[in-house]
Simulated scan of single mutants.
Amino acid sequence: MEFKKFLAKLDKEVPADLDVHLILDNYLTHKTPAIKKWLLAHSRFHLHFTPTSASWLNLVERWFAELTQKKLKRGVRRSVQALEGDIRNWLADWNEHPRPFVWTKTADEILDNVAAYCRRISDSSH
């Protein structure tokens, strides 16, 4: 229900005359019957899902992978407070010295991968 609360918060905070487009991964929480019902009643919301086989498109997921690999897996913490402190320190450092992600594939390579994915999913319905 956290996702539904998030949608309701957006609905309150985004001016009513604007459409809301959300780019999401394919997590089942984003597709429950309750969410589908909510979306029917809120037609200005448009969900766009990243392809299942292309999680690298999800930069939030990529950022958490960076946090996990470079900070969380490299230490031992004896309390939740110590873990929270490490995460807060990581965030402070990241915000002080941001490191943008750089795509290593060309736009054509990305579009080719998306086209191949679309062909695979359209062929799977037969």
Rank of each mutant, 00 (worst) to 15 (best):
A65F: 05
Q69G: 02
F64D: 00
L59A: 06
P98I: 06
E61D: 05
V76G: 04
T50L: 15
L67K: 00
R77I: 09
N95S: 03
H97Q: 10
S55I: 04
S55M: 04
T68K: 15
E96A: 15
K71D: 09
E96F: 10
S53W: 08
T52E: 06
V76N: 12
T50V: 09
L83A: 13
V76I: 10
T106R: 09
E66C: 06
L57I: 03
A82D: 14
F64V: 02
R88F: 09
N95H: 08
L83D: 08
E84S: 14
L83Y: 04
K105D: 13
H97N: 12
V102F: 10
T106P: 09
Q81E: 15
F49A: 04
T104S: 13
R99Y: 04
A82H: 03
R74I: 04
L59S: 03
K73R: 10
G75H: 12
N58P: 07
A82K: 09
T50G: 01
W94M: 06
F49G: 02
W63A: 15
V60Q: 01
E66A: 09
V60S: 04
F101S: 04
V76Q: 08
E96W: 08
A65W: 07
S53Q: 10
S53H: 14
A92E: 14
W103C: 11
E84I: 10
L83R: 00
T68H: 12
A65C: 07
L83K: 02
D86I: 06
T106A: 05
Q69H: 14
S55D: 06
V60Y: 02
D86P: 02
E66V: 14
A54K: 12
R62S: 14
W56T: 05
W63G: 03
A107T: 12
F49D: 03
W94I: 10
L57M: 15
L72C: 02
A107K: 09
S79W: 00
V80W: 07
T106I: 10
S53D: 15
F49M: 03
V102N: 13
D93F: 09
A107G: 04
L67S: 06
R77L: 06
A92F: 13
D86Q: 01
R99M: 07
W103K: 06
E84P: 04
E96R: 13
R77M: 14
V102T: 13
W103D: 11
W94Q: 12
N95I: 06
W103G: 11
T52V: 15
V76E: 09
P100K: 07
D108G: 06
T68P: 01
W56Y: 05
A65R: 12
L57S: 00
V60M: 05
V60G: 01
L91E: 14
G75D: 08
A65P: 00
G85M: 05
W94Y: 13
A92P: 01
G85H: 09
W94T: 08
A107F: 11
P100E: 06
F101L: 11
V60D: 00
S55C: 08
A65K: 15
V80G: 02
V102Y: 11
P51G: 04
N58G: 06
G75S: 11
E61G: 02
E84F: 00
S79Q: 00
R62L: 15
L59P: 00
K70P: 04
V102L: 13
K71H: 10
T52P: 08
N89G: 08
P51T: 01
